[in-house]
Design a protein around this nucleic acid. Sequence first.
DNA 1: CACGATTTGTTCGTATGTATG
DNA 2: TCATACATACGAACAAATCGT
Lengths: 247, 247
Amino acid sequence: MDAQLQTPGLVRGEGLTAWRQIADALTADIAAGLYAAGQQLPTESALAARFSVNRHTVRRALAALAEGGLVRASQGRGTFVEGAPLSYPIGTRTRFSEIVSGAGREAWGDLLAAATVPAAPEQALALALTPGAPVLELHTVHRADGAPLSTALTWLPLPRFAGFGEAYAARGSITRAFAECGVPDYTRMSTRVRARPADAQEASRLDITPGRVVLVVSSVNVDPAGVPIQANRTLFAADRVELVIGG
Amino acid sequence: MDAQLQTPGLVRGEGLTAWRQIADALTADIAAGLYAAGQQLPTESALAARFSVNRHTVRRALAALAEGGLVRASQGRGTFVEGAPLSYPIGTRTRFSEIVSGAGREAWGDLLAAATVPAAPEQALALALTPGAPVLELHTVHRADGAPLSTALTWLPLPRFAGFGEAYAARGSITRAFAECGVPDYTRMSTRVRARPADAQEASRLDITPGRVVLVVSSVNVDPAGVPIQANRTLFAADRVELVIGG
DNA sequence: CACGATTTGTTCGTATGTATG
DNA sequence: TCATACATACGAACAAATCGT
């Protein structure tokens, strides 16, 4: 008998499919701390050997765990145990990079797309512009230790922040990009929170399955003079974060 | 000319695409109150006939409106105008009854169940009790104009609030029940926000279908002396409210 | 429970206008 | 002028969800 892996043979014909038994066994292993949060699970081939089943059966089990948010498969890298949700404080000085690195994880933001678009009524209102005025729209993904934690659409008024996209792509941080654009400090004015299922594009950016729940946080940042400089709509994978208010 | 529907023909070749003109026309109709919140829009076929375009073109316009949250399409039922969600401020002096009546709606809370239970570790921590100490657990539903807006589990330390259940059932308000129990004022200490699909019981209490998204707001209230008096886990139907932080 | 009617969702194919080089 | 690419628009058929009978 193996000391670390208790792997009784699968029971066939008792009403539990093989993949379900494998999923239950892996869930127990994770709950027992055998695989820690963030740690990579054995490869599908290794698990197939351990349970003496075809790799397809292991994949079915892992898909069930991923569906429940317990693990996350990443193509070409492996399957990883999801950690406890990150506490994400919402306040007047909310900074993604500070929150994530304060939790001992490495923060980085990727710029997916940048475009000049006419301001929709919603953004115009938030930024105190006239509707249709040109704004810079950025699509970004924010990662903690490489895993996507949130994805955002942000809008910045335009002639002022023309170089923001390049600055953000180079620095990987809103705070540092603002500093490069001559805004040494900023504070969050208003924050609104909603929740809904993710659509296909949002899900792919967050590396979750479509239909999983996302928290939608809409906020406006202002510079020290009180001028709105950034409207934001950030999506968090709901089972990876917990928003903390007034901490 | 039609008295209720002003439908000038679409202007082709002037730089505005057909779907954009249709989206603008429908937006104006909704803004003008022609289609009220919650009301069903004409079917895609009917709109296609009204604007003399293909159904695809109407769908493109409706997709743009849905993107902005103005309408919601539901397969097999129709396309409906979204009502503005209730803005629910989260702060140190959050009061359900004040928020709802401030929005011009009648607030009332129903007591569904009350029981004395041993404090689970989570509630014990929040209320600064030893785990297993007796607490009063209340199941409540909170309504605005009769429609359920949220449902909550609340825990109160016991012997101090032995009469709270009866007071709440009679008053329909946490604030007034506290007043009756000798706590004239209280403030909210910490608030945590998560989101997930509703289970069957939660859905039935909120009068939504199981699987719809709920916002889970966990909070702790303290009396003027700073003593924790109430731990809370409130579920909001996510498409009926918008949490507002720091307004 | 079955069925049909209604309505939105999806996928073919085709044609046209516009911008680019 | 020609070639190409792309978004727009139209047409037809079918799939899927919902609702009433």
